[in-house]
Every structure is written in C-alpha cells, then in structure tokens.
Design a protein around this nucleic acid. Structure first.
Length: 471
RNA sequence: GGCCCUAUCGUCUAACGGUUAGGACAUCGGCUUUUCAAGCCGGCAAUUCGGGUUCGAUUCCCGGUAGGGUCACCA
C-alpha cells in the first residue's frame, strides 16, 4: 500500500465554515475516496488569538451534515493522534531542533516594533518586504522566548508542478526567513502544516490559490528537511456574488449550516460545490456523492475563479428533491405544516412547487396551501369565467355539486373528481366555465393547484360546502 | 510597487489547431391547460484587445487591458 492516497482538510477553528472551505474539504475527500485512500481532518489551532469558541464543533457538524466523513481526525482519532495542532507542540519543537542543528533556523533578535519598521520602510519604497535582508550576521542560541526563524538555505527562483495548474513558478522574492515557532511557543501555519503533512504521510495537498505565492517557502523547508514534498493541487477561488473578489466572510459568505436551516439538501450543496470549479467532462449536472466519487478527477478542475450562482443552487436542490422517496419527502415536509393530517395528499402539490423546504413556509401562510387551513374569502367577480353570465356559472356549479354528491366518501379521489367534473366541463363551450369557478370557489385564490386535487385534499363535505357557498 | 495566477453567452462551463463555438441555470416565446407550478418544444445570448506562429486559431507564443492572489509572531 505504498501508493495509498492520503489527503487532508485542515481548517483553523476561527468561526463557521463557508462554501470556500467546504469545497476544499469536498475535493480532498472525493480524491481520497476515489482512490480508496484516507481522508484526514486536522485542526490548525495554532493562533489562540483568533480562535473562536465552539468552532471545532461547528466544523464537525458542518462536515457531518454534508457527509464529508473523515477516516482520521478529532473525535475519532487515528494512527497519528492527536489531530489538534495545539496538542502536537513537541513534534514541532523536534522538527525545529532538526533545522537548528542543520543551521537552518535561528532566533529573531529584533523586537516586533523593529520588524514593523523594516516592513514600513519596504512598503514606502514600494518593495516587497523581505525579512532576510535584515538577517543578523550571527545567531544566538534559541531559548524559546524569541520567535524562531527559518534560515532560507538558498535564495533562488522555484518552478514546480501543480496537478491543477501545471507548471508554476515564483521569483526569489517569494522566499524569506519566515517564522517557524512564534514567541508564544506555537508554530506558524507555514511550519506546522508541513511537519504534520510529513508525519501523516499526506500525498496530495489541496488548497486555495492564495497559497501559490508561499509555495516556494514550503518547498525550501522540504529541501532543508531533505523530505520529498507531496503533490500539490491548487483550487481556483470562489468569487463573491459581484464577481470582483475572492469570497470571504466579509462579502456575505454564509455559514454553511444556514443553508441547512433554509432547507437545502446536503446532497444539493455538495453537488453544487463540486460543480463550482470542476466538471465531469460531459453534460451531467446532477450527482449523488457516490457518483461524484466515481466521476471526480483532479485534471478536470478549472483554473479561473467562479462566482456563486444561487439560482443554479436552487435548481440543483429542486432536482434532488425530485429524486427523494415519498418517505423522505414526508419526513422533510411535515415539519413545516401546521398539522400532518393531509400530508400524504399534499406532498405532490408541495414537491413540484418548491426549490427548498423553507419555501413551504410561504405556501402555508398566504400561499397555495393556505386554503387548506382556513376558509377562502372570495369575490363574486373573480368567480366569473371571462364573459360567462353569473346565472350560467351558478348553474354549472350546481351541476358540479350534483355530480360530486354522487361520489361515495371513499371514492372522493383526485381521479374520480376529475372524471366527474370533466364530463360536465367537456359539454360546455369552454371547460373554464366550470373549472375556473370550481377552482376559485374552493381556493379563493388567483393562483392555486388544480381543483381536483384541492377537492380531494379538502374531502367531500368541505368541498360541497365551499361550492354551495359560492352559488 | 515586486512576484504570481486568471480571462468563452448575464452566470457555471464544454470544445486540449479545422465545430453552424456545445450544454446547464437565468431570461424570452410557444405548446399543454381552469389559474399557478411542473412538463415539453423553441428563441436570444460568448471566444477581452493588439500583434505574431500556422494553410487554418477560442485553442500555441509575445504584449496591452481587466480581474484576482500574495508580500504577518493569520491560516
């Protein structure tokens, strides 16, 4: 099993998850699954300043909801315990010592203020800030109170291969003596993630485009440690709705769990995000998770940023709703109804009209379902179909009542009602002379489901009573 | 400012030198029909610009333009 694929998703617990992070997690997950490999969840909690309480649970809940399941990680453990970086500090110290021994790390002698000054100077001169230009001539021993910096072995240009972007390169200004261990004893991302990826034997690293420019730093660390780097797969950014910049929390990137609250199916979110930056190479658009695993391929990940398209998400969600079993539909729908007495009959009305569960709320209060929960209020004028006379309409309604009365209670079904009414309607000049007033009498709405299903749902008594009232 | 990445319908994208530039969402129109929704059929709609290379460029190269990223004791 030397070639086993191992991927990881390594969020920091600094708040909720949004689509960007989820998509990265999804791709790493899909790639591991496709190759029957391992998907690791690792928590990069090395910045205690930015840490947000409850984030870890939130991350776990979000991924669980979407069924992006990890083989190793917090709360389930694994061969590389623990999976919280804050609990792996000894390991980073060990690797830091290796670098110190090799002469590739040294304590930063400056104060933070001094470094800030260097930075401001560089900014003023419109030059990139490079700490290494201020690298001290000789180094003290590291006592742990100062930040430990990497001593870049060789300042050069890097070229490397990326599974998505192909050949990438960066100039020497991408290389610097960055901090390995902070003065608080915690490692930086730049260092910790490399140590962990080595220890956890990660084979494919997937992450956003924003890391391209720091890849030379990572490569120089791998070189200094004399370890072969993993394969890199860089993901294109997800853009804010205006398409102008990378989507971030500030641009309205939502907590992924909000989509759950609004009534999106996890399968739809996964499907949507999979297609945002990747395509299967054919015309398929609707995928289950298993189908995604099957179809996914790194080589078909795109290079350019993609904008969130909520309308498409609605459509995808709708398609997934269509594919639900009756039982699954019922389980999702009943929560939104005032009572579940009529749920069996109402399901078809709902399922073809909504794109997400939350839409049912609007159907119940003031929408197409309202008529089942209270008596309709209707106007005489609207009962009239086009130019038909009121007398004629009343007569038609009477015929309808007569026909429906003949139906036994248990035969009072959508189909039988339709047959009975259509028989009358077909004799008229216009079916609408009967069907419109019936529909309107039953619903009191300009827009509603068809009269047959309404009558079916209402039942015989209520149907006749409403028709009688209309006359 | 340096370095890096990107550029096909409004949006997501396909076409990896030769296609009437394809699909999907959205939109518009028609059919169906008692209204709405759904469904079916159809329309509109794109290769950022300028140079090359080539018999031939959406596709390869160079440049412009535009957008994005990055230059932290954040990840």
């Amino acid at each position: 099993m030397e070639n086993k694929v191992i991927t990881r998703f390594a969020p920091s617990p600094t708040g909720f998850m949004h689509v960007g992070g989820i998509r990265t997690a999804l791709y790493a997950f899909l790639w591991a699954k496709k190759n029957k490999g391992t998907f690791i969840l690792r928590i990069e909690d090395t910045d205690k300043e930015r840490e947000v309480e409850g984030s870890l649970n939130h991350i776990i809940e979000s991924l669980n909801w979407l069924k992006i399941n990890w083989n190793e990680g917090p709360n389930i453990g694994g061969p590389h315990n623990p999976y919280l970086q804050s609990e792996r500090l000894d390991l980073y110290k060990k690797y830091a010592q290796i670098l110190i021994d090799k002469g590739y790390a040294y304590p930063d002698p400056y104060t933070e203020e001094q470094v800030d000054e260097f930075r401001e100077k560089a900014e003023l001169a419109k030059k990139p800030f490079l700490y290494r230009e201020h690298r001290p001539a000789k180094f003290d021993a590291w006592d742990g109170t100062k930040p430990l910096r990497f001593k870049t072995p060789e300042i050069k240009s890097y070229k490397w291969n990326d599974l998505v972007y192909g050949d990438l390169s960066a100039g020497p200004e991408a290389l610097d003596d960055f901090i390995l261990i902070k003065s608080d004893g915690y490692p930086t991302y730049n260092f910790a993630h490399i140590v962990d990826d080595i220890e956890m034997k990660v084979t494919h690293v997937m992450r956003g485009q924003e890391f391209i420019s720091s890849t030379p730093k990572f490569l120089s660390i791998y070189e200094a440690l004399d370890v072969k780097p993993p394969l890199f797969a860089t993901l294109p950014p997800i853009m804010a709705p205006d398409g102008k910049k990378k989507l971030g929390k500030r641009d309205g990137a939502k907590d992924i769990l909000e989509y759950r609250n609004e009534g999106y199916l996890p399968e739809a979110i996964v499907n949507f995000l999979a297609l945002l930056g990747w395509n299967p190479g054919d015309d398929r658009e609707i995928f289950t998770m298993d189908e995604l695993v099957e179809a996914f391929d790194i080589s078909r990940i795109g290079h350019s940023g993609a904008q969130m398209n909520l309308e498409k998400l609605d459509w995808i969600n709708k398609e997934h709703i269509k594919r639900l079993s009756r039982e699954e539909l019922k389980n999702n729908i009943f929560k939104y109804l005032p009572d579940d007495l009529r749920i069996e009959k109402i399901i078809p009305i709902i399922s073809e009209r909504i794109s997400k569960w939350e839409d049912i709320k609007n159907m119940v209060s003031g929408g197409e379902l309202d008529l089942f929960y209270k008596k309709p209020i209707f106007s005489k004028e609207k009962l009239i179909y086009k130019n038909t006379s009121p007398e004629k309409i009343a007569d038609n309604l009477k015929q309808a009542i007569n026909a429906l009365e003949k139906l036994k209670e248990k035969d009072f079904t959508n189909e039988n009602i339709k047959n009975a009414l259509m028989q009358i309607a077909d004799k008229l000049e216009n079916r609408g002379e009967l069907l419109h007033p019936v529909r309107y009498a039953l619903s009191g709405l300009d827009k509603s489901p068809d009269p047959f299903i309404i009558a079916d749902v209402l039942g015989k008594n209520e149907t006749l009573s409403r028709l009688q009232k209309a006359i």
